[in-house]
């Protein structure tokens, strides 16, 4: 089975029927249908019905489908789960996760629905969005709170308010939070997804932020407009040189293995285990993005 990339997670407002219906056409890894902040309070039910019918009937061409539900604190989130879990098609993004207990509460509610509808308990996956100081400090326990979790995500707009600051081009104010979330995700072996960048007209600034979060180790980013897709996919796809280098490392290592040599060196440098692991990861990603096939073709000609 190939790995699931989560470079791009496109926000789709749940009550916008045109976007809900057309979301499948964009080259993103995940679609995140929103019932929370992008839906007005008096439209919550309406949006829930829209997602329920659309997710049931529309073919989203194999993309990962995620629904951001409302908070469970006032009963709205539970209603969202009641309608969406039985579809058996979507992962649930829990908003404003402050502690491991939030995840456990949600998981319990989901498990009951799964039992009620004779679904395999644990089959519904979850993501937790961290959007407060408590959430950031509890990131480790949150990330480890459930086997259902496929990732944790940073939600910066609420977080900066909680931190008594605001978002800046450098992202300095999010340094600690980003690092914390990344550490927690890696510790739990799940994805780390960065927050949205909301200035659609500053593509340079967006690109700089994408490059930074990739360097930090994030798997990808939530996006609010399809115009942002290409830049993320470009930044997160390995370069041709990286792929060729990785290819050389892995094939040299395999040859060495055959003749019983444990440690190899390439171009005068020792190639140790972490380098091989990284090379394998690059090839894995390049396989999913289709780059490997393209490069192999070029070299076969």
């Amino acid at each position: 089975m190939s790995i699931r990339l989560r470079r791009t997670m496109l926000f789709v407002p749940g009550n916008n029927t045109s976007m809900v219906v057309n979301a499948g056409i964009y080259p993103v890894d995940s679609l995140m249908f929103d019932l929370e902040d992008s839906v007005a309070l008096d439209q919550k039910e309406n949006a829930r019905f829209v997602l329920h019918e659309a997710l049931r009937t529309i073919n989203y061409q194999g993309k990962e489908l995620i629904v951001r539900i409302n908070s469970l604190s006032d009963g709205m989130g539970q209603m969202d789960l009641d309608y969406l879990i039985p579809l058996g098609k979507v992962a649930i993004r829990l908003p404003k996760t402050d502690s491991a207990q939030d995840v456990i509460d949600c998981e319990e509610y989901i498990a009951n629905i799964e039992k009620k509808y004779n679904m395999e308990v644990g089959s519904t996956k979850m993501m937790a969005a961290i959007e407060s100081a408590n959430g950031v400090l509890n990131a480790y326990s949150i990330a480890h709170a459930s086997k259902r979790l496929i990732g944790i995500a940073l939600g910066a707009e609420d977080l900066v308010t909680d931190l008594h600051t605001k978002r800046s081009p450098s992202g300095l104010e999010l340094n600690f939070s980003r690092s914390m979330i990344l550490m927690a995700a890696r510790s739990a072996g799940i994805s780390a997804i960065d927050t949205v960048y909301s200035n659609l007209n500053n593509m340079e600034g967006f690109k700089a932020e994408v490059e930074m979060i990739k360097l930090l180790g994030f798997d990808g980013k939530s996006i609010i407009n399809p115009r942002q897709i290409q830049i993320i996919n470009d930044v997160f796809s390995p370069t041709e040189k990286e792929i060729l280098d990785a290819f050389e490392i892995v094939s040299t290592m395999e040859k060495a293995k055959k003749i019983g040599i444990g440690v190899i060196s390439l171009h005068g440098k020792m190639v140790d285990k972490p380098i091989i692991e990284r090379a394998k990861k690059v090839l894995e990603i390049a396989t999913v993005t289709g780059q490997l096939a393209r490069i192999e073709d070029n070299y076969n000609e």
Binding site: N22, I25, Y26, N225, P226, R227, Q230
Partner: peptide, 11 residues
């Protein structure tokens, strides 16, 4: 155009 669908087709 800023219509994402048209931009996707153009791309």
């Amino acid at each position: 155009t800023t219509n994402p669908k048209e931009l996707l087709i153009a791309e």
